[in-house]
Amino acid sequence: GIDPFTGEAIAKFNFNGDTQVEMSFRKGERITLLRQVDENWYEGRIPGTSRQGIFPITYVDVIKRPL
């Protein structure tokens, strides 16, 4: 089901994660935001896939912030 505490964002740019914990994505992908890790990073996942990880806040347009 849908978790009411998650947020939502759209990727503004392609992001290629450097490490296992970073999640790569392509511009235009819809991302579920799980939490804000710190002032620069979100943790999120791509709905319908097993992809999950952290990524820079500046790479996405936030539609709804996670609670």
Results as ranks from 00 to 15, higher is better:
Glu39Gly: 11
Pro56Trp: 02
Leu33Lys: 02
Lys27Met: 09
Thr19Arg: 14
Thr6Phe: 13
Ala11Asp: 00
Glu29Ile: 03
Ser50Asp: 12
Pro4Val: 13
Gly44Leu: 01
Asn14Gln: 07
Ile10Asn: 03
Ile54Trp: 07
Arg65Ser: 14
Pro4Arg: 12
Arg45Glu: 08
Tyr59Asp: 03
Arg30Asn: 06
Pro66Gln: 06
Tyr42Arg: 01
Glu39His: 10
Thr49Gln: 05
Ile54Tyr: 09
Pro4Tyr: 14
Glu8Arg: 08
Asp38Ile: 05
Pro4Glu: 13
Pro4Lys: 13
Pro47Gln: 11
Ala11Arg: 00
Gly17Tyr: 02
Pro47Ala: 11
Gly53Lys: 01
Ala11Cys: 04
Val37Tyr: 08
Ala11Phe: 04
Asp38Pro: 02
Gln36His: 07
Phe55Ala: 00
Glu43Asn: 04
Arg26Glu: 13
Ile10Lys: 05
Arg45Ser: 11
Arg35Thr: 07
Ser24Trp: 06
Lys27Pro: 05
Thr49Ala: 04
Ile57Trp: 05
Val60Ile: 09
Gly17Ile: 03
Tyr59Met: 12
Arg51Cys: 04
Glu39Trp: 08
Tyr59Leu: 10
Asn40Arg: 10
Gly1Pro: 13
Lys27Arg: 10
Ile57Gln: 07
Ser24Tyr: 04
Thr32Tyr: 08
Asn16Ala: 10
Glu39Ser: 11
Gly7Pro: 07
Ile31Leu: 06
Asp18Pro: 08
Ala9Glu: 00
Thr49Cys: 03
Phe15Ser: 01
Arg65Glu: 15
Phe13Ile: 09
Met23Val: 04
Arg26Tyr: 10
Met23Gly: 00
Glu43Val: 08
Gln20Gly: 11
Thr32Cys: 10
Val21Ser: 13
Gln52Val: 09
Asp38Asn: 12
Leu34Lys: 03
Asn16Gly: 07
Phe15Trp: 08
Ser24Gly: 07
Arg26Thr: 12
Gly48Trp: 06
Ile10Pro: 01
Pro56Arg: 04
Val62Gly: 03
Thr58Gly: 12
Asp38Glu: 07
Asn16Pro: 06
Gly44Tyr: 01
Ile31Gln: 00
Gly53Tyr: 01
Thr6Asn: 13
Val62Ala: 04
Arg30His: 12
Lys27Glu: 09
Asp38Lys: 08
Asn40Cys: 15
Asp3Met: 13
Thr19Gln: 10
Val62Thr: 07
Leu34Asn: 04
Ala9Met: 04
Glu43Gln: 08
Asp18Ser: 14
Asn40Tyr: 15
Thr58Ser: 14
Ile57Asp: 05
Gly17Thr: 06
Phe15Leu: 02
Glu8Tyr: 14
Ile54Asn: 05
Thr32Phe: 08
Lys12Glu: 03
Asn16Glu: 12
Gln52Phe: 11
Leu67Pro: 15
Arg45Gly: 05
Phe55Asp: 00
Phe25Gln: 00
Ile54Ala: 04
Glu8His: 10
Pro56Asp: 04
Leu67Gln: 15
Ile57Tyr: 05
Ile10Gly: 01
Val37Glu: 02
Arg51Gly: 02
Val37Ser: 03
Val62His: 04
Trp41Gln: 06
Ile10Asp: 02
Asp3Cys: 15
Ile46Tyr: 01
Gly44Asn: 00
Leu67Ser: 15
Asp18Thr: 15
Arg51Glu: 02
Val37Pro: 03
Ile54Thr: 06
Glu39Met: 10
Gly17Trp: 02
Gly17Cys: 05
Arg45Leu: 11
Pro47Trp: 09
Phe25Lys: 01
Gln36Val: 09
Leu34His: 04
Ser24Asp: 06
Ala9Ser: 04
Phe15His: 05
Lys12Ala: 07
Gly1Tyr: 08
Arg30Thr: 10
Gly1Leu: 11
Thr32Asp: 08
